[in-house]
């Protein structure tokens, strides 16, 4: 059994370490693009097969985004980011549950003098590099959308406000909360998925049959919920950034 907070590298391209989580990320990107392309290629006014299924998911997402924005034009602007976050996080979360995770199938490596198996499969979201990258994208997009919709001066006024000591302090808190979003976004997703993997690895190590199944089902659910939470929080922050500060 090998449990590591950091994603393990399974190969190197030059000096670039190819980690198992990175690999899963690439594979799932290709899978998503392939499925999406197949769906878009078969698109017709009478939906059928893979197009129908994919379109149903997108429609559901669009309706959910509509529920937050209450504005179809705005929903369509936010849609690509929110949908991609949801679909990709969901895909990598679930990919991490495939058989072969947790040191079942992988590369044999020496670790502190002991041979360990480094899995090919590790949920991309069980790697802080990914969750932090996604959090950075989310938070930066929020700032950009805020500036673009209410203007630089008004948006900055949320953070730097000299009208009164209380407002100034509120501004400081806003800055801190933006930074905290980075941490909370990245650690929430990482923590949930990594904990799930550890739980499943340990359970499978202790009792290989039947007993881990309920936990596996639970992790499928957690994977879905975390993808939804990340996407929805980003959406809510986007929507909030478009509103002017209330005094």
């Amino acid at each position: 059994m090998n449990i590591s907070i950091a994603a393990e590298s399974i190969a190197h391209i030059g000096t670039f370490p190819v980690t198992n989580s990175m690999l899963v990320g690439w594979v799932m990107s290709v899978v998503l693009i392939a499925v999406g392309w197949l769906a878009a290629r078969g698109a017709s006014l009478k939906p059928r097969g893979i197009h129908n299924a994919f379109e149903a998911i997108l429609d559901l997402l669009l309706k959910m985004i509509d529920g937050v924005t209450k504005d179809r034009a705005q929903s369509r602007k936010f849609f690509p980011l929110i949908a991609t976050i949801f679909l990709f996080v969901l895909a990598v979360n679930w990919a991490g549950l495939l058989p072969g995770m947790g040191g079942a199938i992988g590369v044999l490596e020496e670790h502190d003098g002991k041979p360990v198996i480094i899995s090919f499969i590790r949920a991309t979201s069980a790697d802080l590099n990914f969750t932090l990258a996604l959090a950075i994208i989310s938070v930066i997009t929020v700032q950009v959308v805020g500036v673009m919709s209410i203007g630089v001066v008004k948006y900055m006024g949320k953070f730097l406000n000299f009208t009164s000591p209380i407002n100034f302090f509120v501004g400081i808190l806003e800055i801190v909360s933006e930074a905290a979003k980075l941490v909370s976004f990245s650690f929430r997703l990482f923590g949930n998925i990594f904990a799930g993997e550890v739980l499943l690895t340990v359970m499978s190590f202790l009792v290989p049959y039947i007993i881990p199944l309920p936990f596996l089902a639970l992790e499928v659910f957690v994977g879905f919920i975390q993808a939804l939470v990340f996407a929805m929080l980003t959406l809510v922050f986007l929507k909030m950034s478009m509103e002017e500060a209330h005094h």
Binding site: F16, P17, F88, D127, A133
Partner: peptide
Amino acid sequence: KLLIAQLINF
């Protein structure tokens, strides 16, 4: 390196 790779990938 990995962080940037993930950013670019996404």
